[in-house]
Design a protein around this nucleic acid. Structure first.
Lengths: 349, 349
DNA sequence: TTGTACGCGTTATCAA
DNA sequence: TTGATAACGCGTACAA
């Protein structure tokens, strides 16, 4: 038996007795086609087992693949551990779906050679969920190809539209809330501070490279300039628990309030407090950041800053869509909303 | 100013005074090229701002795009809520990276029209993480295109290689463990039972369409044929908590042991037990399934069945690789390992 | 409403 | 080691 080449649209056209362009139009629907012609083409397609245009050829011809690259910094399991990232991806997926686009997961700086990248994958656009200096350096090459880029919660250099939060202002609100409650001994539990995710206390003079972490820290320090800040390695309950244990270890030097830079961290801190025999919020107040449902946190309702993570992803998707339309997408700054819960109370005397 | 067409490899070749095929080879490295030629080509490329072959054209020519579609059933935020799924994706990503392939997220049955699908996206292969009957029906069209498919934890019909667990045997081990501890009043908390994720008690005669759920339930019923089974809507702590509240509501009819079909559900059940004033494992024993770290579950260590979720993803990736090589990938059945923890104890008398 | 003609940018094959 | 040739399969001006 001969090596059966799969039918192409030309084969279908020939079989149907029409021209290739007519057959093409039957599938794309870009131009009106008479009913009888359409049916003939469809019959021919069925006959030959042709099920539609080859996406690879179509994308070459159109100059569009219908794929948006999402550059993530960490392994997938860590990435999606954070509910904020999950919601973000959800919003992003939804926003690009109408473009006929799907999300292609790309890890930056993969050690595997031959691994796909923004330069080798057929992407129409890219969203950076994480941007280190090495990535930033490769960006000009990518944009030179006409691949528009949007960065979420990070800085990819001038000319790259950003979607971000008013982290500093928002975090300051939480701090002011605590000050109004009379707290003076406040500690801060931060997200990762650098690319190696070094744990430990941050020296007051340190320059922090991770945008989110730096901005939220600044917001807290606007109110509590001397508050100690303990950096964690990731946004998770267990990291918060570990940090909390450190903070509550010495009964004589316990803070009366903890500003956590994420809800997950806050949940861990709360657990550490319980472990240390402290009541929340009677003995220690805790604030979070994100306003996401934390699986298993009930009955606590965190005092936190609510961000619209889904909306953030959506905004990134819209920016991508605009750029693909040739418009100049502007950066977007989203606002967080302070939401008091039952994890903060007046400072104990 | 003229509409600057971007340089192609032919432009580079002309500029360098070589043939297009030679220039191509310089970039692909598939054939030895003399140093002087290579340098000339590279210089020309730099001159023209050419940064490598267009992935779209390359994929048409090669017949490969370097993209593996991952068909997920739910919204991304729900999907990645489950640590098992996260690890799975991680293993899958790792296994396909050496192929030069990335993962394209595709939602099945998306309501958005124009949304990308296995038929419209330039994928070389596909992994189904979820397979309902509608999806199954479209599969022949996809495979007819020469797109190999692998399904994880589900049945996609004959001829589709599967990667799955020995769910029934594994769950039976947990049940036998409880029987050995003297438990007779056992309840089962199951994963989602159908496509609408209907919560509630499952009638003993019901046919369950979701493979994992059915198999694990069968394993438990092998030992406890009459145990009541309460279906949840998803694998999460909060779903387990809700189910646990139902089970522990009536003090007179409390089970002394609960078989949860996932660790997250088990964690929720434990929390419900604590809420009801029950001690785990003194008053009630709880088993999980998966053997994943549950953020914030400490100090409990679940008695559970450990599955290698990363390995499952890896196996799926290897199967994809084999199929792309033209081999016939066999189905893979992975084995779970029983791991006793501190959440089970002899039945109270 | 349909057909003609061409090119999208690359790479495999083979011969030189 | 290099070059000529020929697809890969399609969509879209434009003309009829």
């Amino acid at each position: 038996m001969t090596t059966t080449r799969r039918a192409t649209i030309s084969d279908v056209a020939r079989e149907a007795g029409v021209s290739p362009s007519t057959a093409s139009v039957v599938f794309s629907g870009k131009t009106p086609v008479s009913d009888v012609t359409r049916r003939r083409v469809q019959a021919a397609a069925a006959e030959l087992g042709y099920t539609g245009p080859d996406p690879r050829a179509a994308s070459l011809r159109r100059g569009r693949s219908g794929i948006v690259g999402v550059v993530v910094g960490s392994s997938l399991k860590d990435l999606f551990l954070d509910p904020v990232q999950r919601l973000l991806m959800d919003g992003l997926a939804e926003a690009v779906a109408p473009l006929g686009a799907g999300l292609l997961l790309l890890r930056r700086g993969s050690d595997v050679d031959n691994a796909p990248s923004l330069m080798t994958a057929p992407v129409d656009a890219a969203v950076l969920l994480s941007c280190d200096s090495a990535t930033r350096d490769t960006l000009p090459e990518v944009t030179a190809r006409g691949i528009p880029i949007v960065v979420v919660e990070g800085d990819a250099g001038p000319g790259v539209p950003r979607v971000a939060l008013d982290n500093r202002d928002a975090q300051r609100q939480a701090a002011e809330h605590l000050r109004a409650l009379g707290h003076t001994d406040v500690a801060i539990v931060t997200l990762w501070q650098d690319e190696r995710a070094t744990r430990g206390f941050i020296s007051p003079s340190a320059a922090i490279g991770v945008e989110v972490t730096r901005e939220r820290l600044e917001g807290a320090r606007d109110v509590y300039p001397d508050a100690p800040a303990l950096a964690t390695a990731a946004s998770s309950i267990d990291e918060g628990l570990a940090a909390g244990r450190v903070l509550f270890a010495d009964p004589d030097r316990r803070p009366t309030a903890v500003i956590a830079q994420s809800d997950l961290l806050a949940a861990g801190v709360i657990r550490a407090a319980e472990e240390a025999g402290l009541r929340v919020p009677a003995d220690v107040s805790v604030t979070g950041f994100d306003g996401v449902p934390v699986d298993g946190l009930a009955p606590y309702e965190l005092t936190t800053l609510v961000q619209d993570a889904t909306g953030k992803g959506h905004a990134a998707g819209l920016a991508v869509a605009a750029l693909l339309d040739g418009e100049r997408a502007a950066s977007v700054l989203l606002t967080c909303r302070f939401r008091p819960g039952n994890t903060t109370a007046p400072a104990p005397r």
